[in-house]
Each structure stands twice: as C-alpha cells, then as structure tokens.
Write a protein that binds this DNA or RNA. Structure first.
Lengths: 338, 338
DNA sequence: CCTGGCACTCAATGGTCACGAGTGCCAGAA
DNA sequence: TTCTGGCACTCGTGACCATTGAGTGCCAGG
C-alpha cells in the first residue's frame, strides 16, 4: 500500500506531465506543488513509485513519466470528474438543440466533443437492437419486388430491397403492412422476432412465401449489428502530439478508419458508467499509446449507443471525462425529445 | 515556347521527384533518363525552366523541384492517364460488386480509391438534385404529424417530420400519396416543383393547409443541397509525407473535416471529364500544398455526384488519374444496375 | 549549340565539448 | 524512523566546427 504522500506525488507527476508534456523531476515538483517536503524526499518516493511500476524514466538522468499503471491508479483513486462550467453547459445545449435530424445530432455531437476535449471524438449511431420500432413501411416497387423501410424511435431509417418468390398483390401488401405495424410498433427490436413468428400462417397459401421473405429480411436487418454506423471527428487534433509523430499517429489513424475496430472498442465499454481504457489496456495494437474514454448514452435510462474520445494516454482525464459525460447526457435529452 | 527537349527535361524532373521525393540535380537526371545530352546542357535547360517558373530550387546548391506551374504543364501536356492493369480492374469490379446497399457502395469506393492511390479519397453521395424520384411515402405518425420519406433512384433515403396545421385523415393522406407519386415518380428532382405546383388546389379546403405543408417540406428536402453527404478515407496515408509533418498535414486534416469545404472542392470540378487542381489553384488555404483529382460519376451519362483524391502536389498524376477514372466508371455501372 | 572543366555555395554529417537537469546514495538532523 | 542536505555521477541537449559532396553557374573550346 502506498502512503498518502506517495499518492500525492503521483498525482502531482501526472498533472505536471499532462500539462508540460515533459518528464518531471523532483525539484520541479516541489516547486510547483506544496508537498511540504524536500526534493530528496520526493526522490525517495519516486524511487518507490518506480519500483511499483507506476512511473518510469525514459532514460537515466531524466525526469519521470507516468506508466499506464500510473494513469490507471490516477483515474481510479486520485482523479475526480471535472464538471463543465455553466456557460459551457449552456453552449452545448444550444448547439445540440439546433440539430434538425439524426445525422445532424450525431454530426454536431462529434464536433462538439472534439472541440471540448481537443481530441478525437467517436460517436456511435443509436444502435438498432436496443431501439424500438416506430414504423415499418412496405412499398411495391414491382409486382415481386418490395422495398422494406424501417423507422426507429431514434429517427434512424434503414431500407432493404426484397425479392419475393412470387408476385404479391397490393392488397396483400397493405394487409401485411397493417398487421405488421400493429404488432411491432413501439416494441423493442429484440422482441420483434417472437412477435411476428406466426404471421405467415395467417395469410393465404399463395402469399406465404412472400410474407416469409419480407419478414426474414426484416429480422435480418434487425440483427445486423455489423451495419452499425459511427462518426468520427477531430482527427486534426492528433497533430497536437507532434513529437514522435508518424510513429504514433499513423496506427491511430489506421485504427480510426476501421469501423470494426472502433465499434469493438466502444462495445467493450461498460453499458452504464464511464469506461476508461488506458494504453495497453486497449486490445487493438495501434491504440497502445492512446486512452479511450467512453460512455453509453440513450433517450431513456438505457443506453442505445456509446460515444467517446480517443486521445494520448497523457490526457487531462478529469476534464475529458467531464466533457464526455456532459455531452452524453445532453444528447440523451435531445433524443428523448424528438 | 519551350523546346521539345526542355519539356522532356521537365517530365524527367517531375517523374524523378515524384519517385524519390528529393530535389533532383542535373547529373542524376542524365543518369536515370536517356536524354542524350550532358549534365551541363541539362543545367542550361534547367536554368531556363527556372526562369519560366516551372521549377525552383529550395536553396542554392540543391537540385530542382517542380513548381505548381510545372506540375500544371506536366499534367496538361506531358502526362497521359495510366490505365489500370487487367487484374486491378477485375479486383475493383469484384470488390464493388459485393456491395449490398448505397452506404456500402460508397464505403467500398472510398476504401478502394484510398488503397489504389495510397492517398486520401473523397466520395460524394449521389446528389439529390440530379437524381430522380423512385417513391415518396407519407406516414401518419399522429393525426397532425406526418413523416415524409423520399426514396431516390440511387437508393438514397431522406426522411422528414412534418407538422401539419390541421389534422389530416388517413384517406386524404392516401389520396395525396397516390397523386403525388403518380406525378413525380421517375421524374428528376429539378422538375418536381413545377409538377406539384397545382396539387393543393385539387384538395378539399380543409386539407389544403396540410397538403401545402407537406409539399413545402418535400421541396425543401429536394433543394437542400447543404445536406449533401460525403465519405472520406485513407487519411492514414497522409502520414506518408512525414518530413515537414505537422505543418503540412494539420491544415489538410482540418480541411477534410469541413464537409462544406470538401463539397465546394468537388463542386468546382467540371461535370464531365477529369479535373486536376494543383497546389495554389485550390481556393482553400489549407490545401495549398495538395492537389485534388476529381471526376463526376453517375448511373447514366450524366454525373450525379463526384469523387476524387486529395494528395500532395508531388503525386503520381498519371497513376492517380487512371485509378480515379476507373473507379468512377465502375461505380457508375454498379449504380446503374441496382 | 553542346560539352567538359572549374571554382563556388551550402545543406548535411559527424565529432567534440561544456552545460545542466536529474538521479542515487549516504551521513546526519529531527 | 523519517526527512534533509550534500555530493558525485549520468546522459541528453545544444553550440561550435570541420569535412564532405551534390549541385550550380560560367566559360572556353569543339
């Protein structure tokens, strides 16, 4: 167990390093923080912290920098979440309130997050699986071809073309549309399969094939999690870490382009509460020198999607966490209103 | 007027510089190209080319590099468009053929372009204004609330919520839906306003307000060019120009995040034929050291949107132009099929 | 008009050296 | 025990300098 003062030293190191981006030494520490002890004492503490693996020195005769483990301890025990100022909150709300549709909400959220944190922002579109159905529309494009349009409570629209095995009449289609909607509107996606299970049986023999095909496509659309979309922004902020440049930034840009990677990244975050993954805690190799702060957001109590920030391990955790949490909260409100 | 050989020298300089990314001198030139003359002669030619502003030297006693003007001449008169190899073409076609919907097509196109050119790819979604209407759907969400869904021939779906001044019956709505579709399906967006102009008059007094509101929203959606979307990819390729780094790359990343800038950029490209904008020819300041190669694509003869590549002025123009043109052609085919 | 030769320029390279921030350790004070 | 001041040591950084070599412009001769 580390003594109270050692923790204080670690906190000071993290804060200074985050501020200056330079290894911090014992003397500078005592000058900039009121630790009440001499540099020599701090040196001893630092030696212990290094033994325990919380800090490291890039080379002999240089200051110390926090390790991933050090940041972890900092986040878990030393750092609070820094709430935003009232003007900031108001600005967020105003900015998000003027969004006109879902794309706009997500787009604004991304820009907002990127600007507030000065880092890379990632926002997942409200996921289909946890939303509820607002409406299902069926349009006959040609006798045997139907367009299926699915509208969610979060305003998202998915559409699929369905080729039926046999022509289907307008009446049957209208019938199906009506019955389908009466069953699924307002229900959660997860419940839909069960709700429509026996629907084909209630149709005439000749239409059953078509009905089954349409329903199959609908279910397919529902479970197709791979289609989850997300938006990212603020990549220009990566250039703020301009030292070790191409080496650090390249794999990050590559990872950011892989939607799969990002979705997995967000997926790993806890459903409720904030998740912070630091450096090597991230499964993806390219993100080993970055931290991810993610949180779920939703129109109700339940999270329908996640959003977060990707930045260097050397980031302002309290501030970032505060911004992420605040934005998530407001986006949730906006979604609930619409 | 520049002599034939001087042009040849310029071509050689551009090619070498693009290959090596280093200023090229007279000696190296004669060694790597069969110009049939001595370095001294080349030096004289280079002096002339420099006087004319086609090349420049970063500092005394260094080789020459092409200026924007030099690249311009190269593109206009010296460079052809390098066609892709047959295997490459086949790979493109296969890759694009397996796309399932519009998002997928655009996504794949972006990745493809980025990979082929090893640069940043930008693909605009088929624009609304030039497309034709496939279907308009009206859904009553509540008595006075209608959801308008617009489906285009390119598979794009736009949806808007409409708050009507007065409740509107299901019958009136169905009526409007039918009449609206019979008038506009298959027509170009640009023609729609005229086609629906007199529609409100044919309705009962009590419904006219609602009908007008719905139509107004429809027209609004049609003209709303600002809503044009695009997708970018391959930003990681920016790190390949790792010399002058943050300075060069930062403004580019910033520009790429501004959809407005990109849309304007693509908008400036000619509707038909390939457009190449080099360095300072780009209006946007952040892109002053990049070149943009753009071309329109579409399902028929007419371009419905544009796609292109953003890279350093020092790029392989023939290869890039070949890739851009080929990809545009195949995307057009895919769109025509669906 | 082309070529070979020559003097000149200047970025890049690499070696040396002094500086200073930072460390670890230890003896003595609290 | 715990903290402190002192001291010797390490090593990255930046300044200075000489060397190198690619590249140039110019000129006289083919």
């Amino acid at each position: 167990m580390l003594s109270e003062r050692r923790l204080e030293v670690l906190r000071a190191i993290v804060q200074d390093y985050v501020g200056t981006e330079e290894p911090v030494g014992s003397k500078a520490l005592t000058e900039r923080h009121r630790l009440g002890v001499s540099p020599a004492t701090v040196r001893n503490d630092m030696a212990v912290l290094e033994d325990e693996g919380y800090i490291a020195q890039p080379h002999t005769s240089a200051g110390r920098i926090p390790t991933d483990k050090g940041y972890r301890l900092f986040v878990d025990r030393l750092a609070g979440v820094k709430p935003l100022s009232t003007p900031e909150r108001r600005a967020i709300q105003n900015f998000l309130d003027s969004a006109v549709d879902l794309d706009d909400v997500v787009g604004r959220t991304v820009r907002l997050l990127a600007q507030l944190t000065r880092q890379v922002a990632v926002v997942q579109y409200p996921s289909l699986t946890r939303s509820t159905v607002r409406h299902v529309e069926l349009l006959a494009m040609s006798p045997a071809r139907v367009m299926l349009v699915l509208i969610t409570d979060t305003g998202r629209v998915e559409q699929r073309m369905v080729d039926c095995p046999a022509p289907v009449s307008e009446e049957s289609l209208a019938d199906l549309r009506a019955r389908l909607n009466s069953r699924v509107v307002g229900r959660r996606f997860a419940d839909v399969p069960q709700l429509v299970q026996d629907l084909p049986e209630s149709f005439e023999q000749e239409d059953r094939g078509a009905v089954s095909t349409v329903l199959a496509t609908l279910l397919e659309t529902l479970v197709e999690e791979t289609e989850e979309r997300l938006m990212i922004g603020g990549t220009a902020n990566l250039t703020r870490f301009a030292h070790d440049f191409p080496l650090t930034i390249r794999p990050v840009l590559e990872a950011l382009e892989e939607q799969v990677v990002l979705l997995k990244l967000l997926g790993e975050a806890k459903d409720s509460g904030m998740t912070v993954r630091i450096g090597h805690e991230n499964a993806h190799e390219g993100l080993n020198s970055t931290s991810v702060v993610a949180v779920g957001y939703g129109s109700g109590d339940e999270a329908v999607a996640k959003l977060g920030v990707v930045g260097p391990t050397r980031m302002d955790y309290p501030g970032t966490m505060g911004a992420v949490r605040a934005v998530a909260r407001y986006v949730g409100q906006i979604l609930a209103e619409s």
